[in-house]
């Protein structure tokens, strides 16, 4: 999955699930959009559906340090590459 596709899918999830429209690439999602830990867990579940895979314990843990939209795209890009 290329970066542009990932970006568009994440944007759709943000809009539909978290009511966050077009977040800035490097905005702190927690500070600016009130994206909390429950949202982060929901996002992980959406990512699993998007990639049709189950995330490992460490992959989920790693995601909790993510703060920006750009970092989310990096994270999904890396997961997608790992799974070929």
């Amino acid at each position: 999955m290329d970066r542009e596709t990932i970006k568009n899918k994440i944007l759709t999830i943000f809009d539909e699930e978290f009511e966050i429209v077009n977040p800035g690439e490097n905005e702190d999602l927690r500070e600016i959009h009130g994206f909390d830990s429950i949202d982060a867990i929901e996002l992980l579940r959406e990512i699993e559906i998007m990639l049709d895979t189950e995330l490992t314990r460490d992959e989920k843990k790693k995601a909790m340090d993510i703060r920006t939209f750009s970092q989310i795209c990096d994270y999904v890009e890396s997961l997608s590459a790992d799974r070929g």
Binding site: S37, I38, I41, E42, R45, A63, M64, D65
Partner: peptide
């Protein structure tokens, strides 16, 4: 747990799921 970082991630994930 109120936070989902570190060792609590899996617990919150299971609870929410």
């Amino acid at each position: 747990p109120a936070t989902a970082t570190g060792s609590y991630t899996e617990l919150v994930y299971k609870g929410i799921s």
